[in-house]
């Protein structure tokens, strides 16, 4: 039932992208996303697309896998393009009732589709090449400066990794409870939407109870090991920049520079 949920859709290969420090990849993805919003013309997407395609090739992740990440956002793309299509004022091409399709609308719709596709694909390259653990590690290290503002960076990162860690456990638990209730004659498959929603109660109540129980157990186990947050804590695998990370930073900054120049000169 929940087998399709793949948060942290990591795809293991031995590529150079996989080996990069997660901080580089996070920064790179952030910069890449920002550059997508710099310009207003299609020409801006050419270097972005080149950048993206090179990353996909370098990562050795099969293209079919990369494209799979687009599937869930298709409804979003459709909705946004429909709104762009009918709500952009300008030169009316087709008009009936209150709906006016303008040439600017078509332009905007296509523009937004390309932008969204580039954005989602770029973001999924990050999650495809970085394990959730490394991702949260990278975020923690990268956002350490926020500690100055009393943001509990380590604690937030810890909560994120625990949450990610618990997803497969809860999926398994759901399956077990579902089977146990089915053995008692529960019916999850038939009936209208209200009947089905009601049938979820015997599934959801035990699931919540068990999630709280597990959380309590985990907290107890962490305290028993004297866990006390980030103060004075060392890591088993500290994040250290290697030469390739500096090269990657240089490439990303070069790309950013190019995009800024293009935006300034209004290409």
């Amino acid at each position: 039932m929940f087998k399709d949920i793949t948060l942290g859709q990591y795809y293991k290969t031995d590529s150079v992208i996989h080996m990069l420090d997660p901080r580089v990849k996070l920064a790179g993805t952030l910069i890449y996303i920002i550059t997508l919003f710099l310009g207003k013309s299609f020409f801006m997407f050419i270097p972005a697309a080149v950048f993206l395609v090179s990353m996909i090739i370098l990562s050795k992740v099969p293209v079919s896998y990369v494209l799979r990440g687009i599937k869930p956002i298709i409804p979003l793309i459709i909705i946004s393009s429909v709104f762009n299509l009918i709500l952009t004022p300008g030169n009316v091409l087709v008009g009936f009732w209150i709906i006016n399709i303008t040439s600017e609308g078509i332009y905007m719709a296509v523009f937004m589709i390309v932008r969204l596709l580039l954005l989602i694909t770029g973001a999924s390259i990050l999650t495809l090449t970085t394990t959730p653990t490394k991702l949260t590690d990278g975020m923690e290290m990268g956002l350490r400066f926020l500690k100055v503002f009393k943001v509990p960076v380590h604690e937030i990162a810890m909560m994120m990794s625990i949450a990610l860690r618990f997803i497969p456990i809860l999926v398994e638990e759901t399956d077990k409870i579902k089977k146990a209730q089915m053995a008692r004659g529960a019916d999850f498959e038939s009936g209208n939407i209200f009947k089905r929603a009601k049938a979820m109660i015997p599934l959801l109540v035990p699931l919540f109870v068990s999630a709280f129980r597990r959380a309590g157990d985990l907290a107890m186990a962490m305290e028993a090991r004297c866990y006390h947050g980030s103060e004075g804590r060392t890591r088993m695998k500290p994040l250290i920049y290697a030469r390739r990370d500096y090269i990657a930073y240089a490439i990303v900054l070069g790309y950013l520079g190019l995009m800024i120049v293009m935006a300034v000169f209004g290409v």
Partner: peptide, 9 residues
């Protein structure tokens, strides 16, 4: 099932 108490609701 094993640990059937987890099915109580």
């Amino acid at each position: 099932f094993q640990y059937p108490e987890y099915q109580l609701f």
